[in-house]
Design a protein around this nucleic acid. Structure first.
Length: 283
DNA sequence: ATGGGGGCCTGCCGGC
DNA sequence: TGCCGGCAGGCCCCCA
């Protein structure tokens, strides 16, 4: 489910109710998700104050005054909902526990944060502060696509000589961290690049276009609160609305949105994932 | 090093 | 109505 824009939207939702607040109670309702939770998770969280909320790629990092950092990944179906607070004059009551609510945090001020994940591909872990660089899930990640380390030189050097399709290269989190299936499809369409083209065959000029287009698509999606297809929701339960701006993703059979292009959006499978593209204007 | 494919889970949707 | 196959915003791991 969540790619960078969705995770950033969740982070922004959590910030006002978690930053500077104490975790009064932590309920851990199963042993783990994709991997077992760290030992004594609930005890290690209880009483800690959140001193920072950061995002790295598709991970949310919560700094705790206990000297630990909690890492969340939402996998394919993870959701984070906030209840018990007033937003926009509306009071969100605590809901009854739902199926697949795995971890519940009650903050000192009354907000409740619930991590729900039906497919359980998500991750929750704890690490020592400052250990981000060595955490196995974070250590080898490529640069943040919205940061300065992601630029034409970096992308060109990582694509050079690679025979993998550009679609799969952009999904590779070691090359650039945070893109997923939706946004790679959208980026390649805006760039006019066919998803099956070998990464090493993407020209210098095209790489130069890809960098700002990746930033553009991600920024637009963040501004829209992410994309809601099936399970994703913002932390207040509202849908994201970038899905209305999709030009190719899940639009097989639609007319191409490119000005003057007579093409029809098609679908192929690459690396076991659907790729949506216009065979006419993507070459 | 690179690449391909399997596997982890649950839920939903369409076809028969 | 019920069953079954296919598919889903991710990513690790093993094999050649």
């Amino acid at each position: 489910m969540p790619e960078l824009p969705e995770v950033e939207t969740v982070r922004r939702g959590l910030e006002p109710v978690m930053f500077g607040q104490r975790i009064a109670a932590a309920e851990v309702r199963r042993e783990g998700l994709r991997w077992p939770f760290p030992p004594q998770l609930a005890q290690r969280l209880t009483g800690a104050t959140v001193t920072g909320l950061r995002r790295r790629s598709k991970y949310i990092l919560m700094d705790l005054d206990s000297g630990e950092v909690m890492l969340w990944h939402l996998g394919m179906s993870g959701r984070v909902l906030i209840s018990g607070v007033v937003t926009g004059g509306f009071h969100h009551e605590h809901a009854l526990p739902q199926k697949h609510d795995h971890v519940v945090l009650d903050m000192g001020q009354g907000a409740r944060i619930t991590f729900n994940d039906p497919r359980r591909f998500g991750v929750i872990d704890l690490m020592t502060a400052g250990a981000e660089g060595t955490h196995p899930l974070l250590a080898k990640l490529g640069p943040e696509p919205l940061g300065n380390d992601f630029n034409e030189d970096h992308l060109a050097s990582r694509l050079a000589g690679r025979r993998v399709p550009i679609k799969q290269a952009l999904l590779d989190q070691h090359i650039v961290a945070g893109l997923g299936n939706i946004y790679v499809c959208e980026v390649l369409h805006r760039a006019g690049i066919h998803p099956t083209r070998a990464a090493g065959e993407v020209t210098t000029a095209e790489v130069a276009q890809l960098v700002p287009l990746i930033r553009e698509v991600l920024q637009e999606a963040i501004s829209a609160g992410g994309s809601s297809l099936r399970d994703y929701r913002q932390t207040d339960g509202e849908l994201g609305y970038f899905q209305h701006a999709f030009r190719v993703y899940d639009r097989s059979g639609d007319s191409c949105a490119t000005e003057g292009c007579p093409g029809t959006i098609g679908r192929i499978v690459q690396g076991g994932r659907s790729s949506f593209f216009c065979p006419c204007c993507q070459r």
